[in-house]
Amino acid sequence: MTSVIPSGRCFWRAFGKVGFLDELNMTEREIEAQPVNFVKLVINQGIKKYPDEVGLPIKILRITKSSIEWVE
């Protein structure tokens, strides 16, 4: 478990094998605007760091008021 953005535009948290997250550099505004790109960035960084333990493909689920859909 690691960083939480406590207030403002959005909430995010990463779980599991995430000891690398200090290296990420996205603002809260960017995360809110492009959440899918953000989750891809986090997981891709993790795959680079721990290739023996985490890997592709990245599965992404989007839930809105009207739908639950696979983004990838």
Binding site: R9, C10, F11, W12, R13, A14, F15, G16, K17, V18, I31, E32, P35, F38, V39, V42, I43, G46, Y50, E53, V54
Partner: peptide
Amino acid sequence: ATILVLVVT
């Protein structure tokens, strides 16, 4: 051996 990411907007 897993990475999960949750974003709520």
